[in-house]
């Protein structure tokens, strides 16, 4: 071949679409802000900080659930088992503490271990047997729900002082009071953020979501990462279950039916692409807040709670279309 030497060397114009990945999250923030402003104008007391704090409080468990889901979706997978895992976690807590008389100090770590282990098991099945995540976690969902019923079909109340007292203990913040579950969920968010952005594991999650085959050929530990992602999700699900137990003071087999879908919705509204490889935990926080603010508006309006579902459904649709539009512009 003939040699061409360019006088300037090869300098390619910068392609300036690198900011594009922030578009979905900014859109979510904008929607949230609009709803907040709209609510404040329309309803008295809506703008009170305590209302926002209550949104956090009522959705702390959903936030934790959605954080775990963010890992899974960024890696290009899906986890349908988290609603059932949450229920199983509440049942295990209630049963072991109330009926078996175990100490919460033992039960809570145990429950978290159960979550991480069963998550890992699903991850391993997904990776090594090449079962689609949808199927594997659907099986996990039935399994966990079934176990709940094996423990008990009735609701079990917890009267252990640790639960009843911590549940009412508030962290003061100036004039306001913050529920410990809110603090816990925010710590989980911070941890997840750190893991996703400042550890190799976190970066590998993004790489696998971008292109699993490439990640493998680049010499990244794909198997360990995939198993790890589902372990994180399982851990978050049972962690959310513990928070839920504090919230309701009981364990009940039928809790959290369909909650995995709420978590997925929150993650998607928060700007994470369902196809994997792109998304932020902070987006997920916004997604959960959107969820919560819709709930609050509907309460203020005095509508029935299923209007929340309709509003979330509509919003979800809008966001998925938005993502498609952005995705199409990229290519």
């Amino acid at each position: 071949m003939t040699t061409i030497t360019s006088p300037t060397g090869t300098r390619l114009a910068k392609v300036f679409n690198s900011r594009q990945r922030y578009v979905p999250i900014l859109a979510t923030a904008a929607v949230l802000l609009l709803m907040w402003i709209g609510g404040s104008i329309r309803y008295e007391n809506f703008a009170d900080l305590q209302v926002l704090l209550n949104v956090f409080k009522d959705n702390a468990f959903l936030l934790v659930l959605a954080v775990g889901m963010t890992f899974v979706i960024v890696s290009g997978g899906i986890d349908l088992s988290v609603g059932s895992m949450l229920a199983l976690s509440t049942m295990l807590c209630a049963w072991l503490i109330t009926e078996e008389g175990w100490s919460p100090g033992v039960v809570i770590p145990l429950v978290l271990v159960v979550g991480a282990v069963s998550g890992s098991a699903m991850g391993a099945i997904i990776h090594f047997f090449e079962v689609p995540p949808f199927i594997a976690t659907l099986a996990g969902m039935f399994l966990a729900r079934g176990l709940c019923y094996v423990i008990s079909t009735d609701s079990i109340r917890i009267s252990h002082p640790f639960f009843t007292e911590t549940a009412t203990q508030m962290v003061p913040l100036g004039d306001y009071r913050i529920d410990p579950s809110v603090v816990t969920s925010l710590i989980v968010v911070a941890l997840a953020f750190g893991v996703l952005h400042y550890t190799r594991f976190g970066r590998n999650v993004y790489a696998i979501g971008g292109n699993e085959q490439s990640a493998l050929l680049m010499g990244l530990p794909v198997a360990a990462t995939k198993v790890g992602v589902y372990a994180v999700s399982g851990l978050c699900a049972t962690g959310a279950g513990v928070l839920y137990t504090f919230y309701t003071g009981a364990g009940y087999s039928n809790t959290g039916i369909g909650m995995e879908l709420d978590a997925i919705a929150a993650v998607v509204i928060g700007g994470t692409l369902l196809t994997g490889g792109s998304g932020f935990v902070l987006g997920t926080v916004l997604g959960v807040l959107v969820f919560g603010v819709i709930q609050t508006i509907i309460q203020f309006q005095g509508l029935l709670s299923w209007w929340t579902r309709i509003a979330v459904g509509a919003l979800l649709l809008v966001f998925i279309v938005l993502q498609r539009v952005i995705g199409a512009r990229k290519t």
């Binding site: 550890t199 190799r200 490439s214």
Partner: peptide, 25 residues
């Protein structure tokens, strides 16, 4: 065989990022 969603720098360094106490610092 690289990851289209990651930045150029990350594609070069992923899997061997400089770390301090296990964190990419």
């Amino acid at each position: 065989n690289l990851c289209p969603n990651l930045s150029v720098a990350e594609n070069i360094f992923i899997g061997r990022e400089p770390r301090l106490f296990g964190l990419i610092n």
